[in-house]
Amino acid sequence: MSSLVFKLFLFASLFQISISARKLAQDEPNQFQSLKYHKGALLSGKISINLIWYGKFKPAQRAIISDFITSLSHSSSKTPNQPSVATWWKTTEKYYELAAGDKTPSPSLSLTLKSQILDETYSLGKSLTDRDIRKLASKGDQYDAVNVVLTSADVAVTGFGMSRCGTHGHARGNTGKRGSKFAYIWVGNSETQCPGQCAWPFHAPVYGPQNPPLVAPNNDVGLDGMVINLASLLAGTATNPFGNGYYQGPQNAPLEAASACPGVYGKGAYPGYAGNLLVDTTTGGSFNAYGANGRKFLLPALYDPTTSDCSTMV
Score class of each variant (00 low, 15 high):
G196F: 05
D102G: 10
S180D: 14
L8Q: 14
L51Y: 03
P250Q: 09
L277Y: 03
W53V: 00
S123L: 06
R164P: 04
Y270R: 12
L302R: 06
D304T: 11
N240K: 04
L255C: 07
G45F: 00
S75T: 15
M162Q: 15
G140N: 04
I69Q: 05
G173W: 02
G275M: 04
D280C: 04
D27C: 08
D309H: 15
G196Y: 03
D27W: 10
G294A: 07
S3I: 15
N81G: 13
G275A: 05
Y246W: 15
A41W: 05
H170K: 04
Q31K: 13
G45Y: 00
A253Y: 07
C194Y: 03
Y95N: 04
I47C: 00
F68V: 07
W53N: 02
S18M: 10
N30Y: 13
K177D: 11
N244D: 14
I64Y: 02
I64L: 09
L14R: 14
T167A: 12
A204E: 10
D102V: 08
D130Y: 12
T79H: 02
A301D: 09
S127G: 04
S18K: 09
T92M: 12
T158N: 11
Y95Q: 05
A12I: 00
R22C: 10
F9P: 00
K114H: 09
L118T: 01
G40M: 05
Y247D: 03
P271F: 02
R131I: 06
S110H: 12
S308F: 09
L128C: 05
F202S: 01
R172T: 15
T91N: 14
H170E: 08
D102E: 07
K267L: 10
E191W: 00
R22M: 10
N174R: 11
Y143V: 11
K94P: 05
G166T: 09
L302I: 14
G196Q: 05
S66V: 04
Y207F: 14
V148E: 00
T306D: 14
F68S: 06
A12C: 04
D119C: 00
K90C: 07
L299H: 10
H203V: 10
R164M: 11
L4H: 12
K181T: 12
P205V: 00
A204V: 02
P209W: 01
G222P: 07
G40I: 07
G268M: 09
I228N: 06
S84T: 08
N240A: 06
S123V: 09
F15E: 11
Y290H: 14
K296L: 08
K23R: 13
L233A: 04
V149K: 02
P213H: 00
T158W: 01
Q26R: 13
G294T: 09
